[in-house]
């Protein structure tokens, strides 16, 4: 488990991190919690020439009530998201989902920004923030820009982030009392979801996103649309995979994944409607 040789720089601020990444370009990778990147490096599946350690950039670890949304610094650890009082009050779905990431050790090291920037469709938080209609704030050499979660994920482990940009904040709209549910189906508690569903519902409105049902986290717009039109939960849940394109792997075939998605979406909407 020895990675290929790499250089290492530690950034003390977001500005310094961006200046470093501008200097080293696509050979560089940000290192935050390290729970996605380091295993890939140890298996030599990733061999970045330069690691820019942003793990000690303190000003990016926060959870703040910003009026109509909650602002979460990109370097906030999963454990802090899981236990945040502010999130429990205004975005309980996200806090709950963060409690399902990996195991306790992972949640103490891994960060919400790292998880989203890594853009793994099997991770819990990209889909959860997608369901919640979050906005991601990124910073580059020319300043900041905002990207809607729905426009962020471009492909497997690919996002709208440019090589010289860094995710700095996640803005999650307040849920305003919506019912919610997070369904994570896996074989072992610590594993990635075989299929996961993050859902909320407020009367005729619903948001549903799927974990591990395609090359990106999937927004199940057909389901939400059907609910808006007054469809029953089970009729809406039958459309769970309309936007999805799931792969087969050791745990699940495409067919089984689609079946699971409709069962789990139904269960999620039932729980969110209580």
């Amino acid at each position: 488990m020895i990675p290929a040789a790499f250089d290492y720089k530690r950034a003390s601020s977001a500005a310094e991190a961006i200046s470093l990444v501008s200097q080293y370009g696509s050979d560089a990778k940000f290192l935050a919690g390290g729970h996605s990147l380091l295993p890939l490096m140890k298996l030599r599946l990733a061999q970045p020439a330069m690691l820019i350690d942003i793990g000690r950039v303190k000003d990016l670890s926060y959870i703040k009530d910003a009026g109509n949304h909650i602002a979460i610094g990109a370097l906030t650890r999963h454990m802090d998201v899981e236990t945040s009082k502010v999130l429990h009050e205004h975005a309980p779905l996200l806090a709950h989902a963060a409690g399902h990431v990996g195991d306790a050790q992972v949640r103490h090291r891994g960060t919400i920004g790292g998880s989203i920037a890594h853009a793994d469709p099997a991770s819990d938080l990209p889909a959860t923030t997608l369901a919640l209609g979050a906005t991601y704030v990124v910073q580059g050499p020319k300043g900041q820009r905002e990207i809607a979660a729905a426009n962020f994920y471009k492909g497997f482990l690919e996002s709208d982030l440019a090589a010289d940009e860094m995710l700095i904040e996640i803005r999650v709209p307040k849920m305003q009392g919506a019912g919610w549910s997070f369904q994570k189906f896996n074989r072992r508690a610590q594993d990635w979801a075989i299929v996961g569903v993050a859902a909320w519902r407020r009367k005729g409105e619903a948001g549903v996103a799927l974990v591990n049902m395609g090359s990106t986290p999937i927004l199940a717009t057909s389901v939400a649309g059907a609910i808006a039109k007054g469809a029953s939960i089970s009729d809406a849940a039958a459309m769970a995979s309309n936007e999805a394109d799931p792969q087969s792997d050791l745990n699940a075939s495409t067919e089984y994944r689609k079946h699971l998605a409709s069962v789990l979406v139904r269960r999620a909407l039932e729980a969110a409607s209580k």
Binding site: L43, D103, R187, R188, A189, Q190, D191, W192, L250
Partner: peptide
């Protein structure tokens, strides 16, 4: 195909 501990499912105490 199951050559590491994320694919070869050794159960943990929670499982």
């Amino acid at each position: 195909k199951s050559s590491n501990l994320s694919e070869y499912l050794v159960p943990a105490a929670s499982d």
